[in-house]
């Protein structure tokens, strides 16, 4: 492992000038298969990044490394001054600060919406129940479904479930939000309600990394678009630049396929 003890001391001195997420020389293999190749990525506080690319290009794997749902074998990942290594404490610290929204929602089907939202604040952050419920209601109102608080996830539509999932992450007051294809499993008429919530979140200054194929969303909120292919970052640019004037052949091909219908 290439972890160094200096990363830990950065916690106290982490300032706005430093990147809030540092991914440096990261490589990852699934068995023999090389999924991530020399990934370097620096995310500033408040930055919104959209990651796109063909399927199997390693986009999801990359953002899943940032809260260690996937383990990287080489390189360093530092999140808000805490290095992700084998230290359980560091992993727990990072997961408290990083929220994640999944393609398949992954709400807990045996708990009500309210319990889904308060579970982690109560057990992980030891927030008193009353306070956790107030926070939960606040975020449910933000995602515009306070009236569903006492239903079970199975009784909600896909779009509503995904908004609950976003609210669940927000209840932990994360510094960074990861979105792993949040609209890919949704019916077309529900995509907008989820994107609206994400846009609002972006406008409030949340640091966001989104793997998505919603190019309209990318144009509207992203500071930077990252294009990945075959496990490597091929190109990164501001959205206008990327969409109007892609540099690599592969990005041109990808854009023609995504936008050309």
């Amino acid at each position: 492992m290439t972890s160094s003890p200096t990363a830990r001391t950065a916690t106290s001195t982490a300032s706005d000038a430093e990147p809030v997420v540092t991914v440096q020389g990261v490589n990852k293999w699934y068995g023999e298969f090389h999924v991530l190749k020399d990934i370097d990525l620096f995310v500033d506080r408040g930055e919104k990044i959209v990651i796109c690319g063909p399927s199997g290009s390693g986009k999801s794997t990359m953002i899943r490394c940032i809260n260690k749902l996937e383990e990287h074998q080489e390189g360093r990942i530092i999140v808000d001054g805490v290095e992700l290594n084998n230290d359980i404490k560091n992993i727990d610290q990072v997961r408290r600060d990083v929220g994640m929204v999944f393609q398949s929602f992954n709400l807990f089907p045996h708990l009500t919406v309210m319990d889904n939202l308060t579970l982690s604040p109560i057990w992980v952050k030891k927030t008193p129940k009353r306070e956790a419920e107030e926070t939960a209601m606040y975020f449910l109102e933000r995602v515009k479904i306070p009236e569903q608080a006492h239903k079970y996830p199975g009784q909600l539509s896909g779009g509503q479930q995904q908004r609950v999932a976003i609210a669940r992450s927000l209840c932990m007051r994360p510094k960074i939000m990861l979105f792993d294809e949040p609209t890919s499993a949704l019916d077309p008429e529900m995509i907008k309600e989820v994107l609206d919530v994400m846009v609002e979140l972006a406008e409030e200054g949340m640091t966001m990394l989104c793997v998505t194929h919603e190019m309209g969303f990318a144009r509207r909120v992203a500071n930077r678009v990252i294009f990945m292919d075959f496990g490597a970052i091929v190109e990164q640019a501001e959205p206008e630049e990327f969409f109007n004037n892609p540099k690599s052949e592969r990005a041109k091909l990808f854009l023609s396929q995504v936008l050309g219908h």
């Binding site: 809260n67 749902l69 727990d92 997961r95 408290r96 990083v98 929220g99 994640m100 999944f102 398949s104 929602f105 992954n106 709400l107 807990f108 579970l119 982690s120 057990w123 992980v124 669940r168 992450s169 932990m172």
Partner: peptide
């Protein structure tokens, strides 16, 4: 489903919390 484990992990639950809850 694996997603349940991942959601619990991403929320910072420990192994025993995840298992029990």
């Amino acid at each position: 489903p694996k997603g349940q484990y991942e959601a619990a992990d991403s929320l910072g639950l420990t192994y025993w919390q995840k298992t029990r809850l």
